[in-house]
Design a protein around this nucleic acid. Structure first.
Lengths: 361, 361
DNA sequence: GCAGTATCTGTAAACGTTTTCAGCTCGCTG
DNA sequence: CAGCGAGCTGAAAACGTTTACAGATACTGC
């Protein structure tokens, strides 16, 4: 049988089955055909081990059945949670997922949006760390549907799923106050990021609501990361030995701070309480388990994916204007603030901290 | 200004610039053209906001500039490390990365390999949890280059990057013995997985080497996960109150076990030492920081990506037979086994536990 | 100014599929 | 048995690009 060279195509099948390529295509797509023809084509296809060329199908059909998710660094547990959820939704709808790390480089983020024009994927979920005027401009003239995970000015016509980190931060600080803490320091990431800014706002509001004094020097804002959290906590404890709680703008900062506390021989939560945000897998893996605010990473991932698929499958493409959804934050109390918190985590979300092994060998 | 409908193509550019589509293509690809022509084309392209259709380019060129990475669940920190590294290498070579979670479903893993035939991506990095005869069959007749991260029988003509978890496990157990531990329990994942099997072998070998007795009932093998580790540790401590160390087949098990130890009011490492494997981000975020064996996830990711790119760009496509590489395991001693271990982690690998925030809002 | 050459340009085919359109075959009805 | 319509089928166009080929133009050296 003439292998022709290269993988089998509908042409090879057509030759082998003695029919036209149109018939082959129809049979393979389940469109009407005579039983006789169906049999011949299916037989030939099976014998040749035919697999349809998705690229050609994409070119013809104008859709690639691929979605892109762009965030700054897959290393962050929050993005991992989102990726997992987005992938699940996408796959269920027959879409593949393309991953793009921007390393928080603005120009790279913009490039991702522009690259929608190359038709490589049908839609984009973008998780920007900052929103600049250029973002807005590029987003509003994107070549395909985009859903932003994050806050967007109200008049921008782009779908968005937001977290309410102001409210989330307030929840955490309120909880710390309710459990008797009065001198609550803030360990934060860069203030010129949306989360850095908003989480601080929540902290300030909560202090004000509670009538607690705000000491500007009981705040640290450097990076979002373990080492930064540890350093900040040590500094704060040096300067303010009377602190009784750390509110940290994410779980990684919180774990870093916890390390510093432990290193000084202090106890969590008896001497110092620690609370984080994001309720990532880290929180329940820590000791003591970390009180954290679930900002709905999983839910936001799912919603964003759904919204995007809506735009894609939807008959009313232009019909609906930009939609906005906000995930409601939820406080998860664990041992780092409350010694009485149940030891066994109530298996927060689904699969927990992943069940697999670390790769064969 | 005939917008024609649909996004700009080389045809629209050709019309607007008054040249043929061939000239447009040449200019855009930097092949020789008269300065005059270049100017006209570039002008028209810019005015129309032209972005080349990557799908059409793929169809013509036969390569998509996409790579696929398939593993069971992105939730596992080890895979996250690999993804990050693979993405970095891929992107540097101008490739996009397609992510595929198989949920450890064998049939799904096989489907991924077969789907190489649809030309959606130019190559595949596969991280299987088990290797079945079907794997071997499907792999050896894959429609494109594949690199497996994991162990493969020697006669299978497929590139592979392996970890040496037998040696790795021995390192950890030896270390525990050297620091005075004698009753070392094993907390493992399923024995019918490659890692589960191999890590146990390493444990057994180390015990034998060291002349330590092996108590079959000081082993637990259930799942690879936090909860499983916690449960197993509690059971073991109930049955063998005299244990002085837990060797765990991955970091998640180890952190679960640590929780159990803490819950019983025992101290780590004074009363019980705990060691894990994989040296994931979790290990340095924990308290006390977790002694773990770095099986080279980052390195394996990088190597796998490089090998794949070699196959793709390589002139000598068929020239080289299957290549095999093994990453050398490395013990990272931290506070969970050695109270004197340096508190500040020597910033194990590059970016550490991720530096980003938890997504805007 | 002319032959010869080097450079550039346009036409057309190709990549592998889906889909329109017209034509064909077949079975049915009268 | 003629006529009709339903149902299949095949030829061809289309998706947007790259590229071989041949034809056109501009240059060089005399």
């Amino acid at each position: 049988m003439s292998d022709g060279g290269g993988p089998p195509t509908i042409v090879s099948i057509a030759e082998r089955a003695g029919v036209s390529i149109a018939s082959v295509s129809r049979v393979l797509n389940g469109v009407g055909a005579r039983p006789d023809t169906v049999r011949k084509v299916e037989r030939a296809a099976a014998e040749l081990g035919y697999v349809p060329n998705a690229v050609a199908q994409s070119l013809k059909g104008g859709r690639t059945k691929q979605l892109t998710f762009a965030m700054q660094d897959i290393g962050n547990p929050v993005y991992v949670a989102m990726v997992r959820e987005i992938q699940a939704v996408a796959r269920a709808a027959g879409y593949r997922l393309l991953l793009h790390s921007t390393d928080a480089v603005i120009e790279d983020e913009l490039a991702v949006v522009r690259s929608l024009g190359d038709r490589t994927s049908d839609g984009l979920i973008l998780c920007p760390i900052r929103i600049t005027p250029e973002h807005i401009e590029v987003l509003s003239q994107a070549a395909g549907p985009v859903v932003v995970i994050g806050s967007l000015p109200g008049d921008v016509q782009v779908d968005a799923v937001q977290a309410d980190s102001v409210a989330g931060a307030r929840l955490a600080v309120q909880h710390l106050a309710e459990t008797g803490r009065r001198r609550i320091a803030l360990i934060n990431g860069p203030l010129d990021t949306v989360p850095g800014h908003n989480r601080r706002q929540g902290y300030l509001k909560a202090l004000a609501d509670l009538g607690l004094p705000h000491h500007p020097d009981a705040e640290r804002a450097t990076e979002f990361g373990l080492a930064a959290g540890r350093t900040a906590a040590h500094q704060l404890l040096d300067e303010h030995p009377d602190l009784d709680a750390f509110f940290c703008a994410n779980d990684q900062l919180a774990l870093g701070a916890s390390q510093a506390v432990h290193e000084r021989g202090l106890r969590i939560p008896e001497d110092i309480a620690v609370a984080g945000m994001d309720d990532s897998d880290l929180a329940q893996a820590a000791w003591p388990p970390l009180t954290s605010v679930d900002l709905g990473s999983v839910e936001r991932g799912r919603l964003a994916a759904r919204m995007l698929l809506d735009r894609l499958g939807g008959a009313d493409l232009e019909a609906t204007r930009a939609r906005r959804t906000t995930a409601v934050p939820r406080l998860v109390v664990r041992g780092s603030t409350d010694p009485a918190a149940p030891a066994a985590p109530a298996t927060a979300h689904g699969t927990g901290t992943g069940s697999g092994t670390g790769a064969s060998a």
